[in-house]
Design a binder for these strands. Structure first.
Ligand SMILES: NC(=O)c1ccc[n+]([C@@H]2O[C@H](COP(=O)([O-])OP(=O)(O)OC[C@H]3O[C@@H](n4cnc5c(N)ncnc54)[C@H](O)[C@@H]3O)[C@@H](O)[C@H]2O)c1
Ligand SMILES: NC(=O)c1ccc[n+]([C@@H]2O[C@H](COP(=O)([O-])OP(=O)(O)OC[C@H]3O[C@@H](n4cnc5c(N)ncnc54)[C@H](O)[C@@H]3O)[C@@H](O)[C@H]2O)c1
Lengths: 255, 255
DNA sequence: CCATCTTTGTGCACACGTTCACAAACACAT
DNA sequence: ATGTGTTTGTGAACGTGTGCACAAAGATGG
């Protein structure tokens, strides 16, 4: 399950404080989940606790680490050493969790050759050699969105079977390849959505009348919109033209 | 729903190519979801398409933007201008999606006063004033994990009601405050988990014998572990001591 | 050795999200 | 105006994940 890393983090914190055992209740509180869920997770995992006492912290740490494959360390390549790539390269939290940065890669000759976090930035041409030689199976993509799919293809071709994608792009990969994406804009948009909910429910304060009208009015409205060659009421959209870096909202009010 | 931003991104891409309408099938493919799911999302949202034709791209873009609260722009503060804070400050994708960086904040005097992405880094003391004056409701935490809860408390106290947390910490907040977390280590660990699954199922290759034995052997094993004062078989763990930056795996083999 | 108390492991019901499949609705050509 | 083709909107079945609640298991104290 996806909650194991959470448990592991809570457990290691306890381990550092030399706590010998935890009850499911305590651990669940520390990890921010339901205690029944935690117990079910552990039972499904096969790890056994002791009734009346709880779980042995050290044993669980080892069990979960093993289950997650953290008893071995995983070489990782980072492709696209810009703002985000630099930050990731400098991040110490990876090494401490069993992930080793095998190489930093970029296509820009101006970036290639510089160092980040003590590692040299190497050229994309070396990708295949590096992946093969060091048996890299995990790749991190921090290139601009336009290059992401192309980089992804090369990674997969070279033998990478797990990809962590930071570019706001939907990657298509063959079966057997796992992709996880981290999209900061989406996170913020979700927050904004809830934020708006809190601040009273009057989203547009105007055009909801037609849209919520049932029956034949709907068809009329649709026809109207199409006839106008676009959004009939887009004039209500803010004048913010936003010279989109990725050009996402740049066309709320089209030409 | 959490998929609206995805749809929005696909739709804006279409909008830039001046595509007037899309079928649910096409859009679903572009967003990487099931078409029925997409239709249900839209119907739940209240936006109407036209049967036999599809959805009006511009109209949908506006509708979703409005639903997400993207017709207004949201001031955001970033706290902790280290590696990650810098990267976020430099990221243009926020501004283009309706998010404006209201201020960069840090506690370190060595960092305060420098500039990042053209903005000055200001001291934490100014937090309350900034949040109040600019009516900031969204805060981003990129401090070390130890400071995260404390920073979170101050943000909430100042009036922030939505928090995006990059520190590997479970934040506790009062009701009415939303927290979303982005944890890169967890993402990598999940990938490693699946990666291990692919590479044959022999996680420990040794100690699974006892653990999977049913019946009274379980109790014996548990007793044994407790008596040994820790993991009876942790000796099988790799010798990698990992001088943990956050000290996460540093205690797989305890003292 | 027995009683009591704590905590696990899990059966079960429930709620939610997902997917299929199809009728109604609309466009378009004739 | 009518038929045909396309696509939406949604009812209903399905699978999954979640949480309650409780019996069994073991610890602990007498
Ligand atoms: N910076 C952030 O905080 C942030 C936040 C959210 C999302 N993102 C996303 O992460 C990605 C990277 O962001 P960034 O700010 O670091 O951008 P950036 O422009 O600073 O860095 C991109 C790097 O990728 C390299 N690159 C370009 N094409 C390449 C190719 N074909 N092969 C290899 N390398 C190539 C460039 O040379 C550059 O060094 C973008 O997709 C962005 O949308 C960034
Ligand atoms: N860098 C990454 O790629 C990365 C990846 C995953 C997670 N993270 C997490 O993000 C967080 C930041 O990472 P980083 O690499 O940028 O760390 P960093 O050490 O480079 O930056 C942290 C910044 O926070 C500031 N700070 C410390 N205490 C503060 C306080 N009480 N109030 C305000 N500011 C304070 C520091 O002065 C520093 O500038 C960490 O929790 C880390 O675990 C980072």
């Amino acid at each position: 399950m996806a909650r194991l890393p959470l448990y592991l983090r809570a457990l290691t914190a306890l381990s550092e404080r030399s706590v010998p055992t935890v009850s499911s209740e305590e651990l669940a509180a520390a990890a921010g989940v339901n205690s029944a869920k935690l117990r079910k997770d552990f039972s499904y995992l096969g790890s056994y606790g002791t009734r009346g006492v709880g779980y042995d912290v050290e044993y669980l740490v080892y069990q979960i680490s093993r289950e997650l494959g953290l008893t071995q360390d995983w070489p990782v390549v980072i492709v696209g050493i810009g703002n985000l790539g630099h930050a990731l390269a400098n991040y110490g939290g990876f090494a401490s969790r069993g992930f080793r940065v095998a190489a930093l890669l970029d296509a820009d000759p101006a970036v290639v050759g510089s160092t980040a976090a003590g590692l040299p930035v190497r050229h994309m041409d070396e990708l295949e050699d590096i992946v093969t030689a060091q048996q890299v199976s995990i790749g991190v993509i921090t290139t601009p969105p336009g290059a992401a799919q192309q980089v992804c293809d090369r990674l997969v071709e070279a033998g990478v079977t797990s990809i962590l994608n930071f570019a706001p792009t939907v990657l298509t990969v063959p079966d057997g390849v796992d992709v996880r994406k981290v999209d900061l804009s989406i996170e913020l948009q979700i927050l904004a959505f809830h934020e708006q909910r809190k601040a009273g429910d009057e989203p547009g304060a105007g055009d909801s009348v037609l849209d919520r009208a049932p029956g034949p009015v709907r068809a009329a409205a649709a026809k109207l919109r199409r006839a106008a060659g676009g959004t009939a009421k887009a004039e209500q959209a803010k004048g913010k033209t936003a010279q989109g870096t990725e050009g996402d909202l740049s066309a709320v009010m089209p030409a």
